[in-house]
């Protein structure tokens, strides 16, 4: 298994990385930056699917909470929840699929970096079986380990990378959390608050103990994540200073949950117009008007995002009757 993993994934990635190093003026630091961007671009469709799916799940949270309050019978509760998912065109595992597909790529990239930026003579010997017999690649050995002020195989003693990793991790975590437009339980809020500070602190601490080449990778991948979150979650339509205001969602209020066709439309490349005049639902309320019954051809747009958008009409939870 390890042999297949190395032969099919890790070794090709190492060789591509070294080709990039050769093409980018013999700089392994630039190769790390370029390779990280390349891999993130290659997995962009999966990442976007994951982000959109995750966002739609967040939008459904109030309605799921209402179902949980309304129905005591677990079986009924599950049925209603699944029905809600079906109507909204959301697969509850939808965000997991792309993530699971991406995991091997990230692990491989991580392995590539640990194998190449190690910088010790021992790691060079270990590369001998992994490099293709191509002059461009073989000529690169031993790989250069310096980039800007960094020795890529060593910790950054200037603490600049520590600060960069901390800030970018905080920003990425903040942007993805603040996008949770649905009301959150106190426990979730508490967890998010803890994550917001714990993750940057942890990664900043790790930066002190890992090769700076890895910390460089963390910084670059965080920056790409920040840019994606910024656009996917609608932060670009807001004042950037809102990011630093506590408890600010990406949009001014909770977005309406889409009807199934609308959700489908969004899946096909997010074609729905964000400027729809359709009123957004007020958060927490979850009753449905007749014109939004399942099967209605009227499409709910991803409105509600713009400043000044009036509150949405509430709508009933599909399925009607309540448990006694």
């Amino acid at each position: 298994m390890g042999f297949i993993w190395d032969t099919l994934i890790v070794n090709p990635m190492i060789n591509v990385m070294i080709v990039m190093e050769q093409l980018l003026f013999g700089s392994f630091g630039l190769a790390i930056v370029a390779f990280t961007i390349l891999v993130r671009v290659a997995t962009l469709p999966l990442t976007l699917r994951q982000l959109h799916s995750s966002r739609r799940m967040q939008e459904l949270t109030p309605r799921i909470q209402e179902i949980q309050k309304k129905y005591k019978d677990p079986k009924r509760r599950q049925e209603e929840t699944m029905k809600l998912y079906r109507e909204a065109g959301v697969n509850p595992l939808g965000c997991l699929g792309p993530m699971i597909i991406q995991f091997p790529i990230w692990f491989a990239l991580y392995r590539v970096l640990t194998l190449t930026v190690g910088g010790t003579p021992e790691t060079v010997a270990g590369l001998s079986h992994r490099l293709y017999n191509v002059s461009l690649i073989q000529d690169a050995v031993p790989l250069p380990t310096t980039f800007l002020w960094l020795d890529l195989g060593r910790q950054d003693t200037t603490y600049i990378l520590v600060i960069l990793v901390g800030i970018t991790t905080w920003l990425q975590t903040k942007l993805s959390m603040a996008s949770a437009t649905a009301p959150q339980s106190a426990q979730t809020q508490q967890t998010n608050k803890m994550l917001l500070w714990m993750m940057p602190a942890m990664f900043a601490w790790f930066t002190l103990t890992v090769p700076s080449g890895l910390a460089l990778y963390w910084t670059v991948t965080n920056i790409i994540g920040i840019v994606m979150n910024y656009f996917v979650y609608g932060w670009h339509r807001k004042d950037w200073r809102d990011i630093f205001r506590p408890g600010q969602p990406a949009t001014d209020g909770p977005r309406p949950t889409r009807s199934a066709p609308a959700a489908a439309a969004l899946t096909d490349g997010e074609r729905a117009t964000p400027t729809s005049k359709r009123p957004a639902r007020s958060g927490g309320s979850d009753t449905r008007t007749n014109d939004e019954q399942p099967g209605s051809k009227r499409k709910d747009r991803r409105g509600g995002g713009g400043p000044g958008t009036p509150p949405a009409r509430s709508r009933r939870v599909p399925g009607g009757d309540r448990d006694p």
Binding site: G153, M202, F206, T209, V210, W218
Partner: peptide, 12 residues
């Protein structure tokens, strides 16, 4: 896991 996998190689 990320940090554990990325320990600095010790020059032996």
């Amino acid at each position: 896991l990320a940090a554990g996998c990325g320990r600095i190689a010790k020059p032996l």
